[in-house]
Write a protein that binds this DNA or RNA. Structure first.
Lengths: 335, 335
DNA sequence: CTGTTAGCGCTTTCAA
DNA sequence: TTGAAAGCGCTAACAG
């Protein structure tokens, strides 16, 4: 709180506060000479504008909020990176909040944000999503863009990836590798993201005349150990020769379980996972991944949000779908 | 901007704005009955206080800033996670900024933050640190805590890990594994973090009667490919049997180079890296790591910052040093 | 081109 | 226990 404010500058320069304010904003109404004087003194005294005052006055905050389930997640941290880049371009600040996959925290957060604290929101919703009620009011009050994870019953701007197609292609890839029994590790069951991935898997099977089997579909749960036990049980009981992990965290138990059961990847069982893990190629053996363009998604979502904030004409339910990349890395499993 | 404000509540309740404000803050001066009425209406109309107005008035922002080199980094994203947890406990908001390892961006940022936008700052400085001048002013104006990466010439509160000891122990570990020629991949050369790690390595060598060799020390550069080439060159020319990577990103070129040169890890060369990579145990072969308690560091740093904000008695140069963990994972290199 | 005035929404004296 | 009034720092309308 450098107590040097506009009033002080005005006093020192024998000008009015209004003139100083205008000069600082490089207004066309102010003479070059006056501007120079103001700028010089502002610099000399290291004047820093008080954002709260100007926000209060202008009813805008030059701040956006990003709400994600977790920051410590390869996808989200990269997306935030992209968002941050665009925000800086617009001289905006970025508030980051985590829901830790809890809708309750999401609701509490959104309530807090309705106070005009931010001009817009970028959100990827919590996985235990059930009730989208809290968004109904929100979207009438604040520009909002959903990225990656969204509520289907809310008409809003969304930036997602080709979840259906990429799961479909991944499954087809396993079929092409002669897998006969392809299991699926399901997550985000409540969200369109999860539903589409599952649908892609199921349709790809059907397309190849393979009858899907409920027993080959494992539902993710919060407990890491339980996930591990489930996958291990699956491998023992049903001996699948292919597995699709619908989120990164579910690929890990596959590796551990295969190791414990002396199963060879990919000789005995091939694994494909949705993942933004940088070191996927270095895993033992390399993990074949469906990689979402996280950084790009962040950039796109932020760009659209700023278009709305700047009143560019954007459809209120504009949807952008980016492409994921299937990175096939099959090794013999011996190396 | 729910246009329901204190004035509106006051009008509706036939009270003055002052009374409503006091009631909302549960002031002892207000009758229970009035409080009840105010709370009821506030809830009914979904009143949300305007932070900017109250911040302006109270000269505090209920917001802290976190400045990190990158969000998409296993250490920093986990640290942010810890910070966020503590901030929520105190009902504070968290602004996140990235410097992308550029001191210039750091300086620009800090200037922006001097406007009273935040009540305190948690920072891990950019790696090309050279000039700490911009902090000299900052620390006189705002409570600030350095975590992990700091400027040595600034008297400030710091939360770090045992960089010297952990590098020392890692080197000793390699010596104990019969390594005779231990290389070091140096990073963060300008920072105490990097200097201490290097010193730990050098002292451990000396302690074992091993003469250190400049040629075995490779300096990190921004270019990934160049790092790879350097490491490859090191392996070809000097054939080290042990390598310490002082940051996670430098472990990767080791893996790639060894692979290209048909060198077996750890049979031909053992690798230890500072790293917070969750999948380190799954790498081909497993990576032995020095893991910093990132989440804990974030929590500690934030906790100390809030102690300062709440005027608890804290030494102006309190330093906290947490312990890293050496996670040894040696495999035959055949699996 | 510059100044005057008013007010953003809230909190805090001071007075009743 | 409540109200009136002032002001945090800034900017926008209006006037000159």
């Amino acid at each position: 709180m450098g107590s040097v404010n506009i009033k002080k500058l005005a006093l020192e320069l024998n000008l009015s506060a209004a003139t100083v304010s205008r000069a600082l904003h490089d207004s066309y109404e102010i003479s070059t000479e006056t501007k120079q004087r103001v700028w010089a003194l502002a610099k000399a005294l290291n004047y820093q504008p008080n954002h709260f005052a100007s926000n209060l006055r202008q009813q805008k905050s030059m701040t956006i909020a990003v709400i994600v389930p977790e920051v410590a997640n390869n996808f989200f941290s990269q997306a935030i990176n992209g968002i941050e880049e665009i925000a800086r371009l617009h001289d905006y600040h970025v508030l980051i909040y985590q829901t830790h996959e809890s809708t309750e925290k999401e609701i509490a957060l959104i309530k807090r944000l309705l106070s005009g604290r931010v001009d817009g929101i970028l959100i990827s919703v919590a996985s235990n999503a059930n009730d989208s009620e809290h968004f109904k009011e929100l979207i009438t009050q604040l520009p909002l863009v959903f990225f990656d994870r969204l509520y289907e019953d809310i008409e809003a701007i969304t930036v997602t990836t080709d979840d259906y197609e990429s799961a479909f292609n991944a499954t087809q890839h396993l079929v092409d590798c002669n897998c006969k029994k392809i299991a699926y590790l399901q997550a985000l069951n409540n969200l369109s993201t999860g539903k589409k991935r599952l649908a892609g898997y199921l349709d790809a099977l059907k397309n190849n005349g393979i009858i899907s089997d409920e027993a080959l579909i494992i539902k993710n749960c919060d407990d890491e150990n339980k996930n591990y036990e489930q996958v291990k049980g699956l491998l023992i009981t049903h001996k699948p020769d292919g597995i699709i992990a619908s989120i990164e965290d579910l690929a890990l138990p596959c590796y551990y379980a295969c190791n414990d059961l002396n199963l060879n990847i990919p000789a005995d069982v091939k694994i494909v996972s949705f993942s933004n893990l940088k070191t996927a190629p270095l895993l033992k053996p390399s993990l074949t991944t469906i990689t979402q363009p996280a950084f790009q998604i962040g950039k796109e979502a932020a760009t659209i949000l700023f278009s709305v904030l700047n009143k560019k004409d954007i459809q209120p339910n504009e949807t952008k779908v980016l492409k994921s990349t299937l990175m096939i890395r099959e090794s013999t499993g011996m190396g």
